[in-house]
Computed example of a mutant assay.
Amino acid sequence: MYFPVADITVSVWVPPLVAFCVSFFTSMGGVSGAFLLLPFQMTFLGYTSPSVSATNQVFNIVAIPSGVLRYMREGRMVWPLTWIVIIGTLPGVFLGAIIRVAWLPDPNSFKLFAAVVLAYIGVRMTRDLMAGPGKNGRKAAEQHFQNMAARFRSKQNEGESIRPVEVLSFTRSRLVYRFYEETFDVSTMGVSLLCFLVGIVGGVYGIGGGSIVAPFFVSILGLPVYTVAGAALMGTFVTSVAGVAFYQFIQPWYPGMHVAPDWSLGLLFGLGGMAGMYLGACCQKYVSARAIKWMLAVILLFTAAKYVLSAL
């Protein structure tokens, strides 16, 4: 099948199959999988124009709601954290889209930029994992996460419902919530600033911003992946809607360049991602948090290395 905006020809079954496989695993960590689909499109499909970023965000719009719905049904959506992610990343996404079109239209420059961002997050997560539990006095030790996963499995076997997240306090300065026996306390303004910076990167990269937020929440703030996944995915969805609208809006100002998304290609990726994310959200509670974090770290480092090699 020929996709005119992307200017590529690919079998119609390839995009949904690839998106399904990627999203199944990445959605467990609150990551849509868009950051892996981007190098696939650029390296394997030869789709290198700036519109690939917008097409990636179309994938997010179609695929993410199924995973978010599952987390909502299980009471694992930390809604205050979700709103912080959305409010913080939205302005950054618009700024990132401008940077992508104005200063990073060249594929090689873009790949090197993306590699630096992904490598930093991957190295940070790997270092924290190798350092072991208790680093920086974090309450959420790895053994706690392992026990939490075991609780999920036992409760499912007993036919009991999963205990929902309990928000204890949400003010302009602090967000405090409890998940099972552990209480988590983060700075509202600090998270908002982090989300703004991540939103810029996400806007450039075409992943909405929430996908990069999830590894930051897990590795830097020490929040449990079981509670941040839904918030990160929801944030990615909302910012992706804004990103796609913005790319479509500025297309008339760039008549010699494809900026708006390839809707048909993005839809095919999204349909596969929809099924993958729902199944990934269903299976997340059966996988230990440490295993999910290692998976995210390996994926990030592999993708960064792939970008560097293809850009040189």
Rank of each mutant, 00 (worst) to 15 (best):
M295I: 08
G96K: 05
Y120L: 12
A289K: 01
T9A: 12
Q41M: 15
V101D: 04
M125W: 07
V259W: 04
S49P: 10
Y307P: 13
H258F: 12
F110A: 09
V117S: 05
F217Y: 04
E158K: 13
R138C: 00
M189N: 05
T43K: 11
T89A: 15
A102P: 00
M125L: 12
M125D: 01
V93G: 05
A6Y: 08
V228M: 07
L36T: 00
K139E: 11
Q41G: 15
A97W: 04
R70A: 08
P16D: 01
T183V: 14
V218M: 05
K139Q: 12
I207T: 12
I299P: 06
K111T: 03
F179C: 07
K135N: 08
Y47L: 04
F20T: 06
G256S: 14
I121G: 04
L279F: 12
Y278M: 13
K111A: 12
G266S: 11
F170Q: 00
L81I: 09
P39R: 01
A231Y: 01
S288W: 07
V165E: 04
R127A: 14
I64T: 02
V93D: 06
K285G: 15
I121S: 13
V201F: 06
F44L: 15
F196Q: 09
F44N: 10
S219I: 09
L301W: 12
Y226T: 15
Q284K: 14
V5L: 09
R124S: 11
V198P: 08
V298A: 12
Q41V: 00
L36E: 00
S27K: 06
P65I: 12
V244F: 05
V228F: 11
S192T: 15
I162C: 06
R138V: 08
S49V: 00
L69M: 09
I220S: 09
G75T: 09
K111S: 12
G235E: 00
I86L: 08
L265E: 02
F113T: 15
R124A: 14
A260N: 06
H258I: 02
A114E: 14
M72S: 12
P105G: 02
P39C: 03
T82N: 01
M234H: 00
K111I: 02
L193A: 15
G190E: 08
L279M: 14
A242V: 12
F184T: 00
V18T: 10
P15R: 03
Q248A: 14
F196E: 10
